[in-house]
Protein backbone atom coordinates (compact mmCIF):
# COMPACT_ATOMS: atom_id res chain seq x y z
CA UNK A 1 0.00 0.00 0.00
CA UNK A 2 2.80 2.43 0.75
CA UNK A 3 4.18 4.51 -2.04
CA UNK A 4 7.66 5.90 -2.43
CA UNK A 5 8.34 9.57 -2.88
CA UNK A 6 11.61 10.88 -4.25
CA UNK A 7 14.23 12.71 -2.23
CA UNK A 8 13.58 16.28 -1.40
CA UNK A 9 15.59 18.81 0.48
CA UNK A 10 13.99 20.29 3.51
CA UNK A 11 14.76 23.42 5.43
CA UNK A 12 13.27 24.64 8.65
CA UNK A 13 10.72 27.38 8.23
CA UNK A 14 11.38 30.99 8.94
CA UNK A 15 10.09 32.18 12.30
CA UNK A 16 9.80 35.73 11.04
CA UNK A 17 6.34 35.66 9.53
CA UNK A 18 4.31 34.78 12.61
CA UNK A 19 2.73 38.22 13.13
CA UNK A 20 -0.69 38.90 11.72
CA UNK A 21 0.36 42.04 9.89
CA UNK A 22 2.89 42.10 7.09
CA UNK A 23 3.65 39.29 4.68
CA UNK A 24 2.20 35.87 5.28
CA UNK A 25 4.40 33.21 6.83
CA UNK A 26 4.36 31.20 3.65
CA UNK A 27 5.42 34.20 1.60
CA UNK A 28 8.32 34.83 3.97
CA UNK A 29 9.37 31.20 3.75
CA UNK A 30 9.32 31.33 -0.01
CA UNK A 31 11.41 34.50 0.07
CA UNK A 32 13.76 32.92 2.56
CA UNK A 33 14.38 30.04 0.21
CA UNK A 34 15.05 32.36 -2.70
CA UNK A 35 17.36 34.71 -0.81
CA UNK A 36 19.01 32.51 1.76
CA UNK A 37 19.28 29.33 -0.27
CA UNK A 38 22.69 27.81 -0.68
CA UNK A 39 23.84 24.94 -2.82
CA UNK A 40 25.37 22.04 -0.95
CA UNK A 41 27.53 19.25 -2.28
CA UNK A 42 24.65 16.97 -3.08
CA UNK A 43 23.00 19.57 -5.26
CA UNK A 44 20.09 20.07 -2.89
CA UNK A 45 18.86 23.44 -1.78
CA UNK A 46 18.74 24.51 1.82
CA UNK A 47 17.17 27.66 3.10
CA UNK A 48 18.49 30.08 5.69
CA UNK A 49 17.18 28.80 8.97
CA UNK A 50 15.11 30.17 11.77
CA UNK A 51 17.12 32.31 14.20
CA UNK A 52 20.29 31.21 12.46
CA UNK A 53 23.12 33.28 11.06
CA UNK A 54 22.62 33.82 7.35
CA UNK A 55 26.09 32.64 6.46
CA UNK A 56 27.34 29.09 6.15
CA UNK A 57 25.54 25.85 5.65
CA UNK A 58 23.59 24.47 8.57
CA UNK A 59 24.30 20.81 9.27
CA UNK A 60 21.71 18.57 7.71
CA UNK A 61 20.95 14.87 7.64
CA UNK A 62 19.13 12.41 5.47
CA UNK A 63 16.24 10.57 7.01
CA UNK A 64 13.69 8.04 5.74
CA UNK A 65 10.36 7.75 7.47
CA UNK A 66 6.83 6.64 6.70
CA UNK A 67 4.07 9.23 6.93
CA UNK A 68 0.50 7.99 6.69
CA UNK A 69 1.67 4.91 4.81
CA UNK A 70 3.91 6.76 2.37
CA UNK A 71 7.64 6.24 2.59
CA UNK A 72 9.54 9.53 2.36
CA UNK A 73 13.25 10.21 2.18
CA UNK A 74 14.35 13.76 2.84
CA UNK A 75 17.41 15.76 3.69
CA UNK A 76 16.59 18.00 6.64
CA UNK A 77 18.34 20.78 8.43
CA UNK A 78 19.02 19.09 11.77
CA UNK A 79 16.94 21.72 13.56
CA UNK A 80 13.72 20.81 11.75
CA UNK A 81 10.96 19.57 14.01
CA UNK A 82 8.64 16.82 12.89
CA UNK A 83 5.84 19.40 13.00
CA UNK A 84 7.63 21.71 10.57
CA UNK A 85 8.57 18.78 8.36
CA UNK A 86 4.91 17.79 8.13
CA UNK A 87 3.44 21.25 7.71
CA UNK A 88 5.98 23.16 5.70
CA UNK A 89 7.49 20.46 3.54
CA UNK A 90 5.00 17.63 3.21
CA UNK A 91 2.10 20.10 3.10
CA UNK A 92 0.29 18.15 5.83
CA UNK A 93 -1.07 21.18 7.66
CA UNK A 94 -3.60 19.30 9.79
CA UNK A 95 -1.15 19.13 12.71
CA UNK A 96 -1.18 22.59 14.25
CA UNK A 97 1.50 24.80 15.73
CA UNK A 98 0.10 26.22 18.95
CA UNK A 99 2.81 26.90 21.50
CA UNK A 100 5.74 25.15 19.76
CA UNK A 101 6.97 24.23 23.24
CA UNK A 102 5.11 21.07 24.26
CA UNK A 103 2.57 22.97 26.35
CA UNK A 104 -0.63 22.80 24.27
CA UNK A 105 -0.87 19.50 22.37
CA UNK A 106 -2.11 20.99 19.07
CA UNK A 107 0.78 19.26 17.26
CA UNK A 108 0.02 15.76 18.59
CA UNK A 109 0.71 12.91 16.14
CA UNK A 110 1.40 9.21 16.53
CA UNK A 111 5.00 8.04 16.14
CA UNK A 112 5.25 4.25 16.03
CA UNK A 113 1.74 4.13 17.43
CA UNK A 114 2.37 6.42 20.41
CA UNK A 115 1.04 9.94 20.81
CA UNK A 116 3.81 12.53 21.01
CA UNK A 117 4.30 16.28 20.61
CA UNK A 118 5.67 16.71 17.08
CA UNK A 119 6.94 20.21 17.91
CA UNK A 120 9.51 18.73 20.34
CA UNK A 121 10.47 15.86 18.04
CA UNK A 122 13.53 16.42 15.86
CA UNK A 123 12.89 15.04 12.39
CA UNK A 124 16.46 13.72 12.07
CA UNK A 125 15.75 11.27 14.87
CA UNK A 126 12.92 9.55 13.01
CA UNK A 127 14.87 7.18 10.77
CA UNK A 128 12.56 4.25 10.07
CA UNK A 129 9.68 5.69 12.10
CA UNK A 130 6.00 5.35 11.24
CA UNK A 131 4.16 8.63 11.64
CA UNK A 132 0.38 8.99 11.58
CA UNK A 133 -1.18 12.43 11.35
CA UNK A 134 -4.82 13.52 11.30
CA UNK A 135 -4.68 13.28 7.49
CA UNK A 136 -3.94 9.55 7.76
CA UNK A 137 -6.72 8.64 10.14
CA UNK A 138 -9.76 8.29 7.88
CA UNK A 139 -10.19 5.27 5.64
CA UNK A 140 -10.98 6.98 2.36
CA UNK A 141 -14.29 8.77 2.86
CA UNK A 142 -14.97 6.79 6.01
CA UNK A 143 -14.09 8.90 9.03
CA UNK A 144 -12.22 7.32 11.91
CA UNK A 145 -14.74 6.58 14.69
CA UNK A 146 -13.24 9.32 16.85
CA UNK A 147 -13.48 11.86 14.02
CA UNK A 148 -17.13 10.87 13.62
CA UNK A 149 -17.64 11.15 17.36
CA UNK A 150 -16.27 14.72 17.35
CA UNK A 151 -18.89 15.55 14.70
CA UNK A 152 -21.66 13.71 16.57
CA UNK A 153 -20.84 15.37 19.88
CA UNK A 154 -20.11 18.81 18.40
CA UNK A 155 -16.78 18.64 20.22
CA UNK A 156 -15.19 21.80 18.84
CA UNK A 157 -15.80 25.44 18.10
CA UNK A 158 -12.84 27.08 16.36
CA UNK A 159 -11.30 23.72 15.51
CA UNK A 160 -7.65 24.70 15.93
CA UNK A 161 -6.91 22.18 18.68
CA UNK A 162 -9.13 19.48 17.12
CA UNK A 163 -6.53 17.52 15.08
CA UNK A 164 -4.32 17.32 18.17
CA UNK A 165 -7.29 16.40 20.36
CA UNK A 166 -8.29 13.61 18.00
CA UNK A 167 -4.78 12.18 17.65
CA UNK A 168 -4.35 12.36 21.41
CA UNK A 169 -7.77 10.74 21.88
CA UNK A 170 -6.76 7.88 19.60
CA UNK A 171 -3.70 7.37 21.81
CA UNK A 172 -5.75 7.66 24.99
CA UNK A 173 -8.23 5.01 23.83
CA UNK A 174 -5.43 2.72 22.71
CA UNK A 175 -3.72 3.11 26.09
CA UNK A 176 -6.98 2.18 27.80
CA UNK A 177 -7.34 5.30 29.95
CA UNK A 178 -11.05 5.74 29.32
CA UNK A 179 -12.56 4.13 32.41
CA UNK A 180 -14.44 7.26 33.50
CA UNK A 181 -14.91 10.87 32.39
CA UNK A 182 -12.42 11.85 35.11
CA UNK A 183 -9.83 9.43 33.79
CA UNK A 184 -10.30 10.68 30.23
CA UNK A 185 -9.93 14.28 31.42
CA UNK A 186 -6.67 13.49 33.21
CA UNK A 187 -5.20 11.52 30.33
CA UNK A 188 -6.28 14.14 27.76
CA UNK A 189 -4.88 17.03 29.81
CA UNK A 190 -1.98 17.47 27.39
CA UNK A 191 -4.40 19.03 24.91
CA UNK A 192 -5.60 22.54 25.64
CA UNK A 193 -8.87 23.83 24.12
CA UNK A 194 -9.21 27.60 24.36
CA UNK A 195 -12.88 27.39 23.34
CA UNK A 196 -13.50 25.21 26.37
CA UNK A 197 -15.10 22.24 24.60
CA UNK A 198 -13.77 19.80 27.16
CA UNK A 199 -17.12 18.34 28.18
CA UNK A 200 -17.95 17.35 24.61
CA UNK A 201 -14.41 16.22 23.84
CA UNK A 202 -14.64 13.84 26.79
CA UNK A 203 -18.01 12.58 25.48
CA UNK A 204 -16.51 11.98 22.02
CA UNK A 205 -13.67 9.93 23.51
CA UNK A 206 -16.16 8.05 25.68
CA UNK A 207 -18.42 7.34 22.70
CA UNK A 208 -15.52 5.93 20.68
CA UNK A 209 -14.01 3.92 23.52
CA UNK A 210 -17.43 2.45 24.31
CA UNK A 211 -17.78 1.06 20.79
CA UNK A 212 -14.57 -0.93 21.00
Amino acid sequence: MSSELPDSAVSPPSGAGESTSGPSRRAVIATGVAVGGVVVAGGTFLAGAEEAPATGTAPSSRVSLTVNGTRRTVTVDNRTSLLDLLREHFDLTGSKKGCNAGACGACTVLVDGQRVNSCLTLAVRLEGAEVTTIEGLADGDQLHPLQQAFVDQDAFQCGYCTPGQIMSGVGCIKEGHTGSPEEIREWMSGNICRCGCYVKIVRAVEQTAGRK
Binding site: G102, R115, V116, N117, S168, G171, G190
Partner: peptide
Protein backbone atom coordinates in the same frame (compact mmCIF):
# COMPACT_ATOMS: atom_id res chain seq x y z
CA UNK B 1 3.95 14.90 35.63
CA UNK B 2 3.62 16.65 32.28
CA UNK B 3 1.16 15.12 29.79
CA UNK B 4 0.59 11.68 28.30
CA UNK B 5 2.36 12.80 25.11
CA UNK B 6 5.43 14.09 26.95
CA UNK B 7 5.56 11.00 29.17
CA UNK B 8 5.64 8.85 26.02
CA UNK B 9 8.75 10.73 24.91
Amino acid sequence: SASAQLRNM
